[in-house]
Simulated scan of single mutants.
Amino acid sequence: MTAAYRTQVVGAALLDDARRPTAFLAAQRTYPEELRGLWEFPGGKQEPHESCEQALVRECAEELGVDVELLTEVPGPHAQGWPLKDTAAMRVWTAVASCGEPLPVVGEDHLAVRWLPLDDPAAALALPWIPADLPIVHALLDHLAR
């Protein structure tokens, strides 16, 4: 039996189009100081009263100011997704902004947001990612290439 992580984190690989995506969104962390300036998938912690999917929809609304439609999960190596540290793991879904939504906004959680082209994976991989998110970037690129 695989041990459970105490903290469940959720992240969105927000795509520019559900049928023929050409880019995904990355967000640059504001805090904590040791992660400031590094890139990540937008998202956050699941609250006890919500599912992972509900948490991700809520986090995208709070952080980016957009309502999202979740598409498919990017499977991780653990039942709870991608291990981040000894106590936390993150599940990641591809998603798109609901019809008519504005472009994502930069809120207090991020210094910047950037669309990364899928036809240039090297550009996405060249960003200084939070170390725990980098394997997820590789998996996302493989997931979308299929």
Rank of each mutant, 00 (worst) to 15 (best):
C99L: 03
L25W: 00
D120C: 10
I136S: 08
H78Q: 15
W115G: 05
C60L: 07
V137S: 06
P104R: 00
C60D: 09
R36H: 12
C52G: 14
P117W: 06
S98M: 06
G107F: 03
E50Y: 03
R29Q: 14
P102R: 15
Q28S: 05
R36Q: 13
M90L: 12
A55S: 15
A124C: 07
H143W: 02
T30M: 07
A139W: 03
A132N: 13
A97N: 04
W82L: 14
D67C: 02
Q54I: 03
L127S: 08
V105K: 15
V105I: 08
W39Y: 10
A27L: 06
P32A: 10
E108L: 07
F24H: 01
L125G: 05
Q46Y: 01
P104Q: 00
W115R: 11
G65D: 11
T94D: 02
P121W: 04
E69Q: 09
Y31P: 00
Y31I: 03
T30G: 02
A55R: 08
V96K: 05
G100M: 03
P42L: 07
L25V: 06
D120P: 00
E59I: 02
A124E: 04
L84V: 15
E33H: 07
D120G: 01
A61D: 09
E73G: 07
E69V: 06
